[in-house]
């Protein structure tokens, strides 16, 4: 029974700030363990840059999980395809990337990103129509068919671009580091942080300030009710899937430049981290995904420096600890 007294005052809403404190908390804890301030700063900036790239890749996947209830194990295909599509720009425009000119380098990078996003978004559309649509609501089939899609995509890359490793050199202006005293920060990592923040800001604005964003958030909670209000959630599904695929393509380009090499399984390699990120963040939560990506990347960097032997398992341990504290992730979406 609801008491009429409930209406007498505003309910006390607790702001859930604890998960957001984990990132600065981790940085503070790591500082004395690492000892050297400059090493700590370098590792932290590198971790933040890596986290931003993982966030770009993972943000689309978490929305696909949350909104469509689709277990897409083929997300890595969009990362790989995006990175390879960038070659369409990088190879013929190699003089732009090699030139010692920031405007030319930036123009080349933006063009590569646009081609990668458009291509992986289009592939995402076909993937959803052909592979995902017949298996809505059937999780086991989703896992099998999307993993199959990933294998086919990787083999297609071998057919078109060959099986050998491809070099993906950084544009000249993004090479090297900026130094602040003893602290050296690689320029490309700063660019990755900036692009990550732009993507996060854009997603935040779209999700919170537009009706499409409201529909996506509502659909993550209760898709049936969104339909009962008169909206076609299937169209929303397709839009989110295409946007998620395009973001994975963007992440693929960023990741490939980060590694400076490219192989067909570049997407598959990063997917374990991506899954850990979206589980830690709470399935369907973009904010949780952002925090999760930063935590995973910082943990990986710090442990690789402090205890290289446990670095491989550090993210699994992080996930276990987070799920012991919050079994539904840092910021669980209401229905889950």
């Amino acid at each position: 029974m609801t008491s009429a007294a409930d209406d007498t005052g505003l309910p006390r809403v607790k702001l859930d700030y604890l998960p957001a404190l984990l990132v600065p908390g981790l940085m503070i804890v790591a500082a004395p363990l690492i000892g050297s301030g400059s090493t700590w700063a370098t590792l932290t900036v590198a971790g933040l840059a890596m986290g931003m790239m993982i966030f770009i890749i993972a943000s689309g996947l978490t929305l696909v999980f949350g909104l469509m209830d689709v277990l897409n194990f083929g997300h890595g295909a969009f990362i790989s395809i995006g990175a390879y599509l960038a070659l369409i720009v990088v190879v013929p425009l190699a003089p732009w990337f090699a030139a010692d000119s920031l405007p030319l380098n930036l123009a080349g990078l933006l063009l590569a990103i646009l081609v990668a996003m458009a291509g992986s978004g289009a592939l995402g559309y076909a993937f959803e129509r052909v592979l995902i649509m017949p298996v809505y609501g059937q999780h086991l089939k989703q896992i099998l068919i999307t993993m199959g899609g990933l294998i086919v995509a990787e083999q297609m890359i071998h057919v078109v671009w060959g099986a050998q490793q491809v070099a993906m050199p950084l544009p000249t202006a993004f090479r090297g580091a900026i130094t602040f005293g003893d602290i050296a920060v690689e320029k490309y990592r700063l660019i990755a942080v900036c692009i990550g923040l732009v993507v996060f800001g854009a997603m935040f604005l779209v999700l919170n300030r537009t009706k499409i964003g409201l529909l996506i958030r509502a659909g993550v909670e209760n898709g049936e009710m969104v339909e009962a209000l008169g909206y076609r959630i299937r169209r929303l599904f397709v839009g989110v899937f295409v946007a998620g695929s395009a973001l994975a393509g963007l992440g693929g380009v960023m990741w490939a430049f980060y590694r400076e090499t490219l192989t067909a399984n570049i997407g598959g390699e990063v997917m374990i981290m991506v899954f850990i990120v979206i589980i830690i963040g709470g399935l369907g939560s973009v904010g949780g995904c952002f925090l999760g990506a930063l935590l995973v990347a910082l943990t990986a960097n710090y442990t690789a420096f402090l205890a290289p032997k446990v670095a491989l398992g550090s993210n699994i341990l992080l996930m276990v600890l987070v799920l012991m504290w919050r079994p539904m992730g840092l910021y669980p979406v209401a229905k889950r």
Binding site: R217, A218, N222, M225, E227, G230, R232, A334
Partner: peptide, 23 residues
């Protein structure tokens, strides 16, 4: 489909209320 029916002028209040808790 449900969206067509809703757009035709039928509103639905389900037993579980169907409110969007995060909104």
């Amino acid at each position: 489909d449900t969206p067509d029916i809703a757009q035709g002028g039928i509103a639905y209040v389900p037993e579980a209320m169907g409110i969007f808790a995060d909104l």
